[in-house]
């Protein structure tokens, strides 16, 4: 199976430092939702950044391929790669409070890329922005488009960011923990909204989270990441019924709703962590990385 996004053997490291991703492979099929789970520091966001071309300069790609819509991004010259990403993919960021430019009005923050990058007319871009803001249930669209970010609530800003991500009809959206910065009450609405929008627009979604509960609701498949390595890639149903890797089982055990109906939480057992670390280490030695 070849996906719309197809990452093959991606390996990254801090310049002159430790390896951050170890030969990561994952696929996101057209129009499907792929979850990316793992504990903090596992490298989830780093994968998203590699796909969208926003890796910090301190990180270098030492191997692998990132195929987006049939093109290996890493083989393109930087300028073309940026254009390609801008025209095909979009990001729904984590923190709505910091992801909008404080000195620009909402309207242009949605329309500028349509005009500058995709060559739309100003009128078309404005009409599109109004429609898409309407679609994410923003009341009083005209006023919001004239507002500055600080005049809107957090939930409102996340809606704007979702609208902005969908505005150019990207075929892939990377959502990096899009709800963790929000109120619990707002989280559910936003999650439902993302799912609704993506289904309507037929967009593939790479969904980064450490919440298996969320994954179970929106994803078709998922990859479990541990210490920069994919330890399990599975279809949703199979993962929740027959997790193969011990770390996956431990993750599930540590998530209240699934294996444990009583809701009593079990931490990931130390021996499982030990087991995974040994495996990662062995893999690293086989592949010749420094750990």
């Amino acid at each position: 199976m070849s996906g719309f996004l197809d990452i093959k053997g991606l390996t990254l490291r801090l310049r002159g430092g430790p390896t951050i991703l170890r030969s990561v492979s994952l696929r996101v099929a057209s129009g499907k939702v792929h979850g990316l789970v793992g504990e903090s520091g596992a490298g989830k966001s780093t994968i998203g950044k590699a796909v969208l071309g926003t890796l910090p300069r301190a990180i270098e790609i030492t191997g692998g391929e990132i195929w987006l819509d049939g093109v290996n991004l890493l083989a393109l010259p930087p300028r073309e790669r940026r254009r390609r990403i801008g025209a095909t993919a979009a990001l729904i960021p984590q923190d709505p409070l910091t992801a909008l430019n404080p000195s620009k009005r909402i309207g242009p923050q949605i329309t500028r890329r349509l005009i500058d990058i995709l060559g739309w007319s100003k009128a078309d871009a404005n009409r599109r922005a109004r429609d898409i803001l309407d679609e994410v249930h923003i009341p009083d669209v005209a006023r919001v488009m004239r507002s500055y970010p600080h005049e809107l609530s957090g939930g409102m800003r996340q809606r704007v960011l979702i609208a902005s991500a969908f505005a150019a009809e990207p075929k892939l959206i990377v959502a990096d923990e899009p709800t963790t910065a929000l109120d619990v009450t707002v989280q559910k609405q936003i999650l439902r909204l993302i799912n609704e929008m993506r289904a309507r627009h037929g967009t593939a979604l790479l969904f980064v989270t450490h919440d298996l509960g969320v994954v179970s609701k929106v994803c078709n498949s998922l990859s479990v990441l541990y210490a920069g390595k994919v330890v399990e890639e599975a279809q949703m149903h199979r993962f929740f019924t027959q997790p193969i890797h011990p770390y996956s089982r431990a993750l599930l055990a540590a998530t209240p709703t699934y294996l444990d109906p009583d809701g009593s939480l079990q931490p990931v057992p130390a021996e499982v962590i030990q087991e995974v670390e040994t495996e990662v280490h062995q893999h690293a030695q086989r592949a010749g990385y420094d750990v």
């Binding site: 969208l52 071309g53 300028r79 940026r82 254009r83 910091t98 909008l100 890329r113 990058i117």
Partner: peptide, 14 residues
């Protein structure tokens, strides 16, 4: 380093 700059970068700008 701020998020909105990163977001702008994903939009295809130089």
């Amino acid at each position: 380093h701020l998020d909105y700059v990163t977001l702008a970068r994903t939009k295809g700008y130089s």
